[in-house]
C-alpha cells in the first residue's frame, strides 16, 4: 500500500515525539490502543490553567505509519488551541489532511480517542483538585 506524501513526512519526521510530566496537574495523558493491529498510542497535553490553552503536546506511538502520522498531526493541531477547541478535532479531519485510505481510518479514530482521553484526564485532575482542596497557608 502506498502512503501519501504527508503520511511519509510525519512518519520520517514525526513532530513532538516525547513525554510530559505525567504527575503534573496541568498535564493530561491519553493512552489508547488497537489490539488487533498491535498499536498503542500515548498522547499528552500541557494546558495553561489560567487561559485553558494547550501550550504543548507530545506523543509516542508504537504502530504503523498511519498511526504515527495521525498522532503526530494531532499534536501539531493541538498546540495553541483551547481545550474546548481541541475537542472539536474529528478523525475525519485527520483522514482528509493525510489522505488516509479506508483501511487506515481506524488509525485516525485512535488519534481522536487519544485526544479525548488526554483532555478527559486533564479535566479529571483539575476537577479533583477542586473537590479536595489542598490546605493552604493564607498570607
Amino acid at each position: 500500500m502506498a502512503y501519501s506524501d504527508k503520511v511519509l513526512d510525519h512518519y520520517n519526521n514525526p513532530r513532538n515525539v516525547g513525554s510530559l510530566d505525567r504527575t503534573s496537574s496541568s498535564v493530561g495523558t491519553g493512552m489508547v490502543g488497537a489490539p488487533e493491529c498491535g498499536d498503542v498510542m500515548k498522547l499528552q497535553i500541557q494546558v495553561n490553567d489560567a487561559t485553558g490553552i494547550i501550550e504543548d503536546a507530545k506523543f509516542k506511538t508504537f504502530g504503523c505509519g498511519s498511526a504515527i502520522a495521525s498522532s503526530s498531526l494531532a499534536t501539531e493541531w493541538l498546540k495553541g488551541r483551547s481545550v474546548d477547541e481541541a475537542l472539536m478535532i474529528k478523525n475525519t479531519d485527520i483522514v482528509n489532511e493525510l489522505s488516509l485510505p479506508p483501511v487506515k481510518i481506524h488509525c485516525s479514530v485512535l488519534a481522536e480517542d487519544a485526544i479525548k482521553a488526554a483532555i478527559s484526564d486533564y479535566r479529571k485532575k483539575q476537577g479533583s483538585e477542586v473537590a479536595t482542596p489542598v490546605a493552604q497557608t493564607v498570607a
Binding site: V32, A34, P35, V40, K42, D113
Partner: peptide
Amino acid sequence: TKDVPPELLEEVF
C-alpha cells in the same frame, strides 16, 4: 478503545 483496559496498554507501552 474503551474496551481495552488501561493496565494492558500501560504494560504494552
